[in-house]
């Protein structure tokens, strides 16, 4: 079963073609790793899946991406609703210019999410009021991102004061807070120390029961550790995509083999 189908996707910035005719079905409720050398188009592919690419001026997208049978590049699509369903964790996770608490509460607020029906709060709201409901909600997602213990005493201080690693986990909490179905993560552990990185990896493994997680990494070992499915890009071409087991043990393409063994990078 596949919710995300990419059909003949070509993307160029100006006249620089970055993705060339990529077609691919992405499996559901798994962790999918997008790998490939720097500049091969990983970030571009990720951003095309929630139309974040639209923000760039001279970008041209050809082809189609279907999510749940709906072409997200159809002109009448509600982009804000799409982005709520397809969360994005950027390579450089800036915090929003507000408190730690508000960083997590912001997304649900703009989407008018009924937090009382979320598992994090589940019915507690009637007894405790709206404010306490939101507090539990924020606590839930900060805990899920492994940040709660470090920030629980300073929820209302500026998020900008957090360390980079903490900011990255805050960004994770923020993505989770809008309750997306698909999470796109661009090198989500690149700014983390090994311990925090492990924490995020563990979170991903738990989250994949409910979410489809597509993440970019340039660490082959991380892809091996984490991913169920691998997408390998090389200079804008989709070279190979397969289950992790098959990809690493019996690569079909010569380039894949060379990349895995470190002959090209």
């Amino acid at each position: 079963m596949s919710r995300i189908k990419i059909k003949q996707l070509s993307i160029s910035y100006g006249n620089h073609q970055v993705l060339k005719n990529v077609s691919l079905d992405i499996p559901d409720r798994q962790i999918i790793a997008v790998i490939g050398p720097s500049g091969c188009g990983k970030t571009t592919l990720l951003k095309s899946m929630n139309r974040l690419l639209d923000l760039n001026e001279d970008v041209a997208v050809k082809g189609e991406i279907f999510i749940d049978g709906e072409n997200i590049y159809r002109p009448d699509i509600d982009v804000t609703a799409l982005r709520k369903r397809v969360g994005f964790l950027p390579q450089h996770p800036y915090p929003l210019p507000m408190s730690i608490f508000d960083n997590v509460a912001f997304g649900p607020k703009i989407h008018g999410l009924d937090i009382s029906s979320t598992p994090a709060v589940s019915g507690a709201q009637e007894e405790t009021g709206k404010k306490e409901g939101m507090r539990r909600f924020v606590e839930h997602y900060l805990s899920l991102a492994g940040l709660w213990d470090e920030v629980k005493d300073r929820l209302h201080s500026p998020a900008a004061k957090l360390s980079i690693g903490q900011q990255q986990r805050l960004a994770l909490a923020r993505v989770l807070s809008i309750e997306p179905e698909i999470i796109l993560a661009d090198e989500p552990t690149s700014a983390l120390d090994p311990i925090s990185a492990k924490l995020v990896e563990t979170q991903f493994k738990i989250l994949k029961q409910d979410y489809t997680i597509i993440f970019v990494t340039h660490i082959l070992r991380q892809a091996k550790r984490l991913a169920d499915y691998i997408i390998f890009l090389y200079m804008g071409d989709l070279v190979e995509h397969a289950t992790a087991g098959q990809f690493f043990s019996e690569p079909r393409d010569e380039k894949t083999r060379a990349y895995i063994t470190g002959e090209i990078s």
Binding site: T80, P90, F106
Partner: peptide, 23 residues
């Protein structure tokens, strides 16, 4: 204002007005 910061908000599904006001 860094573009990545605005992008961060848009990635959450904000409209232009929400991004402008909140970020």
């Amino acid at each position: 204002v860094p573009f990545e910061l605005k992008e961060m908000a848009y990635a959450l599904g904000t409209t232009r007005a929400e991004t402008t006001l909140a970020v």
